Amino acid sequence: MSNPKPHIIIEGAVQYSLGTMQGNQILYDFDKMLVYLDAKGKLLFGKKFKIYKEDRDILYKLCLYFIQDRIACKEFGIDIDKGILLSGPVGCGKTSLIRLFKYLVPHRKPYEVIPTRNIVFGFNHLGYKIIEDYGNGQFFCFDDLGVEPMGRHYGKDCNVMGEILLSRYDLFLERKIKTHATTNLNAAELEERYGNRVRSRMRQLFNLVAFDRGSKDKRK
């Protein structure tokens, strides 16, 4: 059953309006979305969570992407049909944000956030079935791409995430199924980690949304 009021989200006894309905369209209000994200972040991650002023530009782009505002996204060079690769230094809040944003659009199909190292541990234990499992039609966000160890199963090494990204690329071409990811690495480091072929596929799979390299570590 579709939600007649997808612009209103209820958390416990509190109701958050993200904008107004006009016909069958939602006119979203960025500041109202930030209020909701801050409240939901505290519910998910604890009282210390906060939305930082210096992250407004990134948050604005992510909001536009997740509400699928095609025209505004185009101005920022964001293709709403691709996934998001959220990059930035350690501790800048990438994982929290990517976990949080799926709650902003509860009327859309959610994605599952999976740490890449867990996927590799699964491969070491179960082998190539793991690559097939993540090459299926589900929506995933691969957290911490590029820092996972090399996979090894029965003495054979495998760049597990590289293989999965190739499978996800095929899914994207055939069925427009999106993939999201977070990473601490820059483009050159990703290419070194996965090779030129995977890197070129990643350009077609992802919109790069990057925190400033100087972003502070919010965990300190």
Rank of each mutant, 00 (worst) to 15 (best):
G137H: 14
K94E: 02
I177V: 15
T95E: 06
Y65S: 05
D217V: 04
L27M: 15
L62Q: 02
F123K: 03
S2R: 13
K102A: 04
C92W: 00
M161H: 00
M21N: 02
Q25I: 13
G195E: 08
R199W: 12
H7A: 06
A210F: 04
A181G: 02
E11I: 15
D79W: 11
K218C: 04
G122K: 10
Y169Q: 03
G137K: 09
L166C: 02
G46Q: 07
K102T: 13
G23F: 01
D29H: 12
G91N: 03
E75L: 10
G155D: 11
Y128P: 08
K82V: 07
C158I: 04
S167T: 14
Y169V: 00
L185C: 06
Y65G: 01
R193M: 07
R193Y: 10
D55G: 04
L64C: 09
M202Q: 03
G88K: 01
T179G: 01
Q68G: 06
N159K: 07
I8R: 07
S215R: 07
Q15S: 11
L145Q: 00
N184S: 13
K61W: 02
I131K: 01
H107W: 14
N196P: 03
I26K: 00
I71A: 11
I130R: 01
F172W: 12
Y28D: 04
R203Q: 12
D217P: 09
G93N: 04
D79A: 09
K156P: 04
R199G: 01
G19M: 06
E11G: 05
A13F: 09
T183S: 14
V14K: 15
T95Q: 04
D31G: 09
C158G: 09
R201I: 05
N207D: 06
G155Q: 07
F123L: 04
G23P: 05
V113C: 13
H180F: 15
N196D: 12
G122D: 11
L62P: 00
L44T: 09
I177T: 11
I67F: 02
K109F: 12
L100C: 14
P115W: 01
L43W: 03
I71Y: 14
M150W: 10
F206C: 01
F121Y: 14
R70D: 10
E148R: 02
P106D: 10
K156A: 15
E75G: 14
G162Y: 05
R193S: 08
N159E: 13
Y36I: 02
E192R: 12
K129W: 06
